[in-house]
Structure formats: C-alpha cells, structure tokens
Amino acid sequence: MTTLITAPPIDEVAPTARTVIRPGVLPAPGAKQWVPACPVSRLVPGRGVAVLLPGGGQAALFLLPNGMIYAVGNIDPYARAGVISRGLTGDRAGEPTVASPLLKQVFSLRTGAALDDPEVALPTYAVRVQHGLVRLGVPHP
C-alpha cells in the first residue's frame, strides 16, 4: 500500500479567532463611487460572492483566509458567463488566485490577469471596509 505515516495526531488548528481585513487592491486614482456590497461577516474565508454594480455590471468579491479582500470582474472572459465569484481561490507561487468554475482558467486576484494567457485579464476593483461593511470602488461613469 502507500506510505505509512506515523505522525501523532495533532491538535486541530484553532479557527482564526479574528480576521484582520485588508483590502487587496489599491484604489486606482480617480473619483469613485463606493458601492456597498455586504457586511464582512457575510463572507466565507476562501470563497466569493457576486456583487451587482450600478449600471448592470457585476463583480466577484473574495475574502481569503489570511484576511485579504479582493474584487475582480465576475464575467468569465473565456466562457462569457457570470461565474468567477463561484470559483475556488488559492495561490500560485504565492500569487493569490481564483480559478473559473467552468473551464478552470486561473486569474490573479491582485491584478486580474489570466496567469496562463497574457492577453486576457479581469477588471479589478478597489475595496474599502468601513464599519464592518465592504464597499467596492467603481469609477464614476
């Protein structure tokens, strides 16, 4: 059979008591409209939610287990469907990522770039947390 592992059971790693929230994407210069998304408590570490933007656009908002919050476009440019918020997060050599749930292309959460395809990128949005409420910075039309 496979390797025998003889490590003693360890105590479960206690769930992080308090997550320090840090917006991952710095606001690009320029005036913004700060769209309220949801309370931080509504976010599950490691997963995303979709946010409806004024004018019908949509963003995908993620809280990572290390406390970073990122927002990128929700529309998968390959599959042309609003699914990015439902992808799995993780990292590639330290770069925080999300993988599309449809065809599994991987995007950087920091820059929005598709990691295997320099031509393609998701838009990114600045994030702000005020009084426990997450807001997304959307450029004024």
Partner: peptide
C-alpha cells in the same frame, strides 16, 4: 492516521502556501 480534519491543519503540517483548485 492523524485524524486531521481541516484543510488548514493539513496544509500547515504537510503542505505549503494557501492551496488551489
């Protein structure tokens, strides 16, 4: 054999980084 029941526990002990898809 170890009874570790969380991804974070497994990663901390046996892996690196934050995981992936």
């Amino acid at each position: 054999s170890t009874g570790i029941r969380t991804f974070s526990g497994l990663l901390a002990r046996y892996g690196t980084g934050t995981g992936c898809e």
